[in-house]
Amino acid sequence: MDNDNIIEIKNLTIQYKTDERTVEAVNGLNLTLSRGETLGLVGETGAGKTTTALGIMGLIPDPPGIVTEGEIIFQGQDLLKLNKHKLRAIRGKKISMIFQDPMTSLNPVVTVGDQIAESFRIHEKLSYADATLKAKEMLELVGIPGERYSEYPHQFSGGMKQRVIIAIALSCNPELLLADEPTTALDVTIQAQVLDLISKLKREKNTSMILITHDLGVVVEVCDKVAIMYAGEIVEYGSLIQIYDNTCHPYTKGLFGSIPDIESKADRLNPIPGLMPDPANLPDGCSFEPRCKYSCEKCKTHNPPAIEVEAGHFVKCFSTEKGGNE
């Protein structure tokens, strides 16, 4: 593993198995993230973004979830091979996660201060008094007065709850932060405040981050690299400039075409036709083929490999072999 990389994911495959069917949630995923970088993991609902993050955290519900293949290398260790005790020591201290819904991520019968202080008591072995002091400092850091330590989640607005979640995630100065759609449940003004807060804290602590979102506007504000995910696979990967200025995959083009542009007049947006395929019944070839206007017979029977179209820019599409699509 490159010393500059904080995490390297190789051929990660995650399935949810029941008696009736097998859901192929993540299929041969490969990702690399350098220290201090922010990667935007983008895709529609059901693409496998959250399952990827839960796989990194070791929180895939088992049963029915199972990691069938792959490696997640973090600081020279394969997280998938660690026992629960060693993984628990890493989770929350070196790798933290901001969960998607602040309304359900906090324990309603425990004060917000105690929920933050718990991280300090578990991972840094601080006394109750010292942990309380540090928790109040974290509240102040995310813009909440320390005297609100003893209040309960129901006494906070949605935006304030999200700030508490961020304080919990950043309490032990993690080296890798997984942010699962941290602004989805918030109004636009609070979204901007939360993104500014995450970016500020990330810069101050040099934290690497994987930002999970379906909002390409959010990505351009905070990310260095972008991975476009579809049906459990990374279909396009590259730097922010490569993805935005040299968009190659038809799915990525469709995502950009679905965004309203205030500078151009259009009667209608150009949405991607159809729906994400059923992960329990994926197509034999390219998963995007049924929705793709560039598809050919080969696409129906063969899954395209990731092709490097320029340095560091990878695309899973047969059209790139023919010089790109129009």
Rank of each mutant, 00 (worst) to 15 (best):
R21K: 09
A169C: 11
Y16N: 01
L133G: 02
F120Y: 15
K205N: 10
L126V: 06
G46S: 09
F74K: 02
E124L: 14
S127Y: 10
G274W: 02
S157K: 05
V222W: 13
E69S: 14
D19C: 00
N83A: 05
G143S: 07
A185Y: 08
R148F: 07
I198P: 02
D2Y: 04
K81F: 05
N325L: 06
E37A: 09
G254I: 03
V235D: 15
K161T: 12
G36K: 03
K322H: 04
C248W: 09
Q242R: 03
I241E: 15
R163G: 15
G159I: 02
E69G: 03
T132E: 15
V226K: 06
K205D: 06
F156G: 11
K125C: 06
E37G: 02
F74S: 04
H123W: 12
C317T: 05
L195E: 12
I60S: 07
G238A: 09
D278M: 07
A131W: 07
S171K: 09
Y16Q: 01
P153C: 13
S295K: 10
N173Q: 11
P290F: 07
L195Y: 14
E71D: 15
H85P: 00
Y149W: 08
I228V: 15
C286F: 08
V26M: 05
A280P: 00
T18P: 00
A306I: 02
I7V: 13
P145F: 00
R268I: 02
K293W: 07
G312N: 10
T189Y: 13
S239A: 05
T183H: 06
L282Q: 06
D267K: 11
A131R: 02
I122G: 13
T18N: 03
L176V: 05
K134P: 10
